[in-house]
Each structure stands twice: as C-alpha cells, then as structure tokens.
Amino acid sequence: MIDKKIVEYVANLARIELKEKEADVLSTQLGDILGFIDKLKEVNVDKVSPTSHAISLSNVLREDSPKESLPVNSVLSNAPLKRGNFFLVPKVIE
C-alpha cells in the first residue's frame, strides 16, 4: 500500500529530503496510519457531497481598493539572504 519507494516519491513532491533511515521508519508508520484510515472505506458515501468548510461561505468579495502595505524593510528583515529590495535565492537559470 505504501512502501519506501512511494514515501520517497511523495517526499520529493513535498520537497523534503529524507535520510535513508527516516524513509524506512516513515514507510512503516505511514503504513500503520493508512491501515487505520482505511476504515473510511466501510462508509457508503455514494450520495454524499463533500464538506470542505464546516460553515459554508461562497464568493466572499471585497472592494479592490489599495491599502497600505507593510514596509519593505520590515518584511525583508526576516530573510535569510537578501540584496537591496529582494530575496536572494540560488541561481535558477544558466
């Protein structure tokens, strides 16, 4: 159902690097958890619609009017690396 290969595949989707041992432990633990979750297969949900929010709201709209934003320096103050008014990341193009 869930083996080490799937765990490694999903970890890559989630952009998380796992150590060899972590992937082993996780495949056992997630196997147990998913085994428990399989209980949901007993329930007949044929004519049931999904609930994504307990209190249903739709189309919450507001005026598209400009408001003051946070000062750039206060937002950038938490950046691990920055230059000028920008966040700095490793080069993405050659």
Binding site: I37, L40, V43, S49, P50, T51, A54
Partner: peptide
C-alpha cells in the same frame, strides 16, 4: 480514495 472520501465522511459527521 483518501481526500475526497474524507471530505464526504466529514459531511456525515457534521
């Protein structure tokens, strides 16, 4: 199998 089914069972619980 997992996410959509869980949202439907959530409806029943509610």
């Amino acid at each position: 199998a997992y996410y959509l089914r869980a949202l439907k069972v959530r409806t029943l619980i509610k």
